[in-house]
């Protein structure tokens, strides 16, 4: 990817935000790390990218990034989807940091809707872009009430929803943004990652930070913290499996995108994580 340049775009502070704002956000992050899964309100700023397009993740990244970091930005698992490109360019321009598309080379990974297939390490931080931070929002519209429910660990209504799914469909019908219990205390939304990715959050070696810019919340899962997807003991949480493997690299353990290749509806399945796919292909080619 682009070589990091040391200059910053015309007169802006390093990584766009002023130092006071970064300090405010870091304080929120520290509080979030101290209370795993708890949503910390923060005074989200308007950023040059629209709300709903990753401003929360961007503000978190901007507050923790330094000149020696190496940033990877993905959307839907790919580095060259338009919004990932846009965000990466934003940091290249305002922070001049090095960027990469190799998960294993990144110190910070900012992501929308996927966790990389390559396991993360202790020296890495993953920043998730979150649209709706509140896991009970669809059950209870009022913020004042959901805050109380979290304070009282009043999560009964969430289980009622799961019960209903099983009663009606025989299984829980949440396929992404599947709610989790963090550190045995707080109910959390992992952001719209497919439930396939949920197990990666459990006892991850990396620090996981979550930013919701429009809703003005930050939350975190410290390294080696338990993250359990909600389920019933007799209907345990399961992840998706495909009948196919990746048409490019042959992987059968990664999340696959379905691609329609002609007007007769022919389909191909390929790894959503483009870096993972590329690395596997390189290894296969070398053999």
């Amino acid at each position: 990817m682009s070589e990091g340049e040391e200059q910053t775009a015309g007169g802006y502070n390093f990584a766009y935000l002023d130092e006071q704002t970064k300090r405010m956000i870091r304080r929120a992050i520290l509080k979030a790390v101290a209370i795993p899964g708890y949503q910390v309100p923060f005074a989200s700023r308007e950023m040059p990218l629209p709300f709903g397009w990753g401003t929360g993740g961007i503000q978190v990244t901007a507050s923790i990034i330094g000149p020696n970091d190496r940033l990877k930005v993905i959307d839907q698992g790919a580095d060259d989807t338009t919004n990932a490109v846009s965000i990466r360019q934003f940091f290249a321009k305002t922070a001049g940091v090095a960027t990469t598309d190799r998960t294993s080379h990144a110190s910070i990974v900012q992501t929308r809707h996927r966790i990389p297939e390559t396991p993360l390490r202790e020296d890495q931080i993953i920043v998730y872009q979150v649209p709706i931070p509140e896991p009970m929002r669809w059950l209870e519209q009022r913020e004042a009430e959901t805050r109380r429910m979290h304070a009282l660990a009043d999560y009964g209504p969430m289980y009622v929803r799961l019960y209903e799914d099983i009663a009606q469909f025989g299984r829980v019908t949440t396929a992404y943004d599947y709610p989790v219990m963090v550190n045995g205390r707080y109910l959390m939304r992992p952001s719209p990652i497919p439930k396939f990715d949920n197990p990666k959050m459990n006892m991850s070696a990396a620090l996981q930070l979550f930013g919701a810019g429009r809703e003005k919340r930050i939350y975190a899962v410290p390294p080696y913290t338990s993250v359990k997807s909600l389920d019933f003991t007799d209907h345990p949480f399961t992840i998706e499996r495909w009948d196919n493997s990746c048409a490019i690299c042959g992987a059968n353990d990664s999340f696959l995108d379905e691609v329609i290749t002609d007007d007769r509806g022919s389909r191909l399945f390929v790894c959503s994580d483009t870096d993972y796919c590329r690395q596997r292909r390189a290894v296969k080619a070398a053999e």
């Binding site: 959307d75 839907q76 809707h113 992404y176 943004d177 719209p192 497919p194 396939f196 999340f255 995108d257």
Partner: peptide
């Protein structure tokens, strides 16, 4: 924005 991964899950 692309939502094809969550759509895929659906």
């Amino acid at each position: 924005l692309p939502h094809y991964v969550d759509f895929q899950a659906e």
